[in-house]
Simulated assay, not measured.
Amino acid sequence: MNIKILALMLLAFCAQPVWSQTPPASTAAPDSVALTTRLALRDLWVEHVFWIRNYAIANQAADKQQAKVAADQVVDNATKIANSIAPLYGQPAADQLLKLLAGHWGAVKHYSDATVAKDSKGKQAAVADLTSNAKAIAAFLAKANPNLPEATLVAMLGAHGGHHVAQIDELAAHDYAGEARTWHMMRGHILALADALAAALVKQFPDKF
């Protein structure tokens, strides 16, 4: 199945955006804010895939309590990311990004739930939702930052979505060796994606970095 999806999250680190944190003059380096932003983005993206993986594991084990904890963390992570862009792009843009991220999570959750239910049509519908949402997020990010080509975003995020789907399928099949390989690729891809986003931000807002 040719899976193209999304999963783009723009920036930040926590409620306090990293680019507004000015280090002491005695320790500041010319690239310190840019580096801090890059590392913060990496943390957020890794948290995204970590908590979705935890949800899939708990969901397949019928552990509703742990599944809820993981789902809440996914939402909290997305909310922090969305709110963090407000200083650069405004609160309406942050609200729009949160809706798009919620759509991404909803589609991945749907795929996980359909896998547990052995609902092949539900899985197909979830992939269709992921594909549509990926295009919407790519368009949003490309419009916000001209250094992020829309076609490139769709391709990069297609790989990210494919990792989610492959991981869920491998966990369901108890193919742990396969899932370990997927996790390795997923984590490396997420870090590369975070770095690309950080570089685009530095280029668009050089005065902030």
Rank of each mutant, 00 (worst) to 15 (best):
Y111W: 06
L148V: 01
A172Q: 14
T37H: 03
I81C: 12
H164L: 11
P17Q: 05
K208Q: 08
A200L: 04
L153R: 03
G178N: 13
S120C: 07
G122M: 11
A173R: 13
S84I: 09
A12L: 08
G188I: 14
H163C: 04
W51Q: 09
L39G: 00
F13M: 03
T115M: 13
L44Q: 14
K203F: 02
L35Y: 07
D31P: 01
T152H: 03
N77C: 13
V154D: 00
A194M: 09
A192I: 11
F13Q: 05
W19V: 05
L98N: 04
V18W: 00
D95H: 01
L88I: 12
C14T: 10
D207H: 07
F205L: 07
A71T: 15
P146R: 01
T36D: 12
H164A: 11
D169G: 13
P17A: 03
Q65W: 14
A15S: 03
R181K: 15
S26N: 02
A56Y: 10
V116W: 06
I85L: 11
P87D: 07
L44C: 06
V108D: 02
Q204A: 05
L130Q: 07
M9R: 02
E150I: 00
D129N: 08
N83R: 14
K118A: 15
L6C: 01
L98I: 03
K4N: 09
V108M: 06
A25T: 08
A25Y: 05
Q167L: 15
A138Q: 01
